[in-house]
């Protein structure tokens, strides 16, 4: 357990030390500040727009950080040969990967905390309220999504080169909504074989759109927060996919000659 914590701490510190996390955060914060500073016709309390833009920027910036960070973890260890002294220690590969996973998630949390701070200050400045229960559920579901993206990033980086892994990760994140809509829409257009394929794909591809609670958070005056049962199912869903990718990573990792 201690070794997991040590590795995750290294990942987190390195993420904080590296310039890109600041560049992404700075650019996003700049965008947020500009948006919050625009005076829209001297009207107070136009919160839906601010909420939507802030949540989108938060999510995009964190996802980008997580995808880049997770995709780079393993290849760099191999490239710089820093993995060899680590593996020489009595450290299990599962602990090593778990440490990396925890580190990236903590980095995502670090990103979210920065954005949350700006969002809260901005909202108070604009003069609106924060729908706390919606907002916290939104963050929780985003973290589950980041967990899937992290393990997927590890896996992709083990089977293809870095740029390709990052590109594929970003495409997967950006097209999440298209994916889920297209499956339901195409179902009526295809034959039996197509229908079977779509059903299988729906269940074997993680539907990241399910972790995007921004719609209800933006229009929170109309929609209630999610019930615990739904949150539990979504948590299990995220763990199933992350666990599966994690296991695949372990298998590939073991086969790699170290």
């Amino acid at each position: 357990m201690r070794s997991i914590w040590l590795i995750s701490r290294t990942v987190l510190l390195e993420a904080i030390r590296r310039k890109e996390i600041y560049a992404i955060t700075l650019v996003s914060l700049l965008l947020l500040t500009v948006i919050f500073s625009i005076d829209f016709f001297q009207i107070e309390g136009l919160m839906k727009f601010y909420r939507e833009v802030a949540l989108k920027i938060m999510s995009m910036a964190t996802a980008l950080t997580v995808i880049v960070l997770s995709s780079r973890q393993l290849p760099r260890e191999f490239e710089n040969k820093t993995i060899y002294p680590l593996m020489a220690k009595p450290l299990r590969r599962t602990s090593f990967l778990s440490g990396k996973l925890l580190g990236v998630i903590l980095a995502a949390l670090f990103c979210f905390s920065l954005f949350m701070f700006v969002y809260i200050i901005g909202t108070l400045y604009v003069g609106g309220g924060i729908p706390w229960s919606h907002f916290l559920q939104y963050i929780y579901l985003q973290l589950l999504q980041m967990m899937i993206l992290t393990t997927l990033g590890f896996l992709l980086s083990l089977v293809m080169n870095l740029d390709a892994a990052i590109t594929l990760g970003i495409i997967f994140y950006i097209t999440a909504n298209i994916l889920i809509t297209s499956f339901t829409y195409l179902y009526d257009f295809v034959g039996i074989f197509g229908k079977t394929m779509l059903t299988v794909l729906t269940f074997i591809i993680p539907q990241l759109a399910l972790f995007d609670f921004s719609g209800k958070t933006v229009h929170s005056e109309v929609w209630p927060p999610l019930d615990l049962n739904t949150l539990a199912i979504l948590t299990a869903y995220a763990f199933v996919f992350s666990g599966f990718y994690y296991l695949l990573c372990i298998v590939i990792f073991r086969r790699r000659a170290i």
Binding site: M160, N161, D163, A164, T167, L168, I171
Partner: peptide, 14 residues
């Protein structure tokens, strides 16, 4: 060599 074609192929596959 760097298999950058992967990216090109992924984007074309889209």
């Amino acid at each position: 060599r760097r298999k950058d074609l992967y990216v090109l192929i992924i984007l074309s596959l889209l």
